[in-house]
Computed example of a mutant assay.
Amino acid sequence: MSLSVNGIVIDSRTLAEEIDHHRDVADPEIAAQRALVTRELLRQRARELKLLGETALGDISDEALVDALFARDVQVRRPTMDECRAYFAEHAAQFRQGDRVQASHILFALSGAVPLAATLARAQEALDAVLVEPALFEGLARRLSDCPSGREGGSLGMLMRGHSVAPEFELVLFSGDRLGIVPRLVNTRYGFHIVRIERRVKGHMPAFEAVAERIAAELYHQARQRALRHYVALLAGAADISGTAGPSFLQ
């Protein structure tokens, strides 16, 4: 069945192109459906409200579209200074500066020539093996890793916060105080990683005032994302959507 929103069909080519943007998640097709249906619901609402004048919807970014709709339909509250201070206290480690981590990884890269499920299965099998016998890590890295670091047993050396090209990877490295093999695969746009953390060097804490603006922006972003999910769910509840995995796929 074709994917459609209120009678507007989203063709298979558009879906296939969108799937390519979600190769780093467990189910790229569901993620692509979610993105396309969300975009179409927002565009239809913008047409209904005549918000954009003569501007073609294909010429406006998703962010600008949400801005226009929120200005009309949704108010997102800015965080208070007390809320920012509470967040700073609860997430202190996130704001330390100069943190360094010595780590290694085994990368199972995503490839259009190999089914995602097959790559995921290989990665999970290797992770299960090193969780049982950590001494296997370097050998598996040399044999299996798709990263040049595999030649060095997966070693990435000493990494500083803010220097990683993959935010998801960095989040795992600098969250908490764990050492050893991370007990789950780390998904990034590059593929699936088995990560081992060998050493941590803590930096220093900045004053709250130095990061207050950054915290306020992050809390506002989180509130805006929650508001967007709720808004899209309301639009979806009043829409005729077919060809998806079910009504809960937008949640």
Rank of each mutant, 00 (worst) to 15 (best):
S2T: 09
I8W: 09
I10T: 06
A16P: 11
H22S: 02
R23E: 02
Q33I: 10
R39F: 00
E40V: 09
L42Y: 04
R45N: 07
A46P: 01
E48L: 13
K50D: 15
L52Y: 01
L57P: 07
I60E: 08
V66F: 01
R72E: 14
P79E: 01
M81S: 15
A86K: 12
H91I: 06
F95S: 07
R96W: 04
F108E: 15
S111P: 05
G112E: 12
A117F: 04
T119L: 12
A121N: 02
D128E: 13
D128M: 00
V130S: 06
P134S: 07
G139D: 14
R143Y: 00
L144F: 07
C147R: 05
G153I: 03
G154I: 11
G154M: 05
L156H: 13
L159P: 04
M160V: 11
M160N: 06
M160G: 15
V165G: 08
P167A: 14
P167L: 12
E168P: 07
F169Q: 06
L171I: 08
L173W: 07
F174L: 04
S175Y: 03
S175F: 00
G180V: 13
P183T: 01
R184G: 09
L185Y: 00
V186M: 10
N187V: 12
N187W: 11
H193T: 09
V195L: 15
V195T: 07
E198D: 15
R200M: 08
K202M: 12
F208M: 11
E209C: 07
E209R: 12
E218H: 13
L219N: 13
A223P: 05
R224P: 12
A227Q: 10
H230A: 14
V232C: 07
G243M: 10
A245E: 10
P247K: 10
Q251G: 06
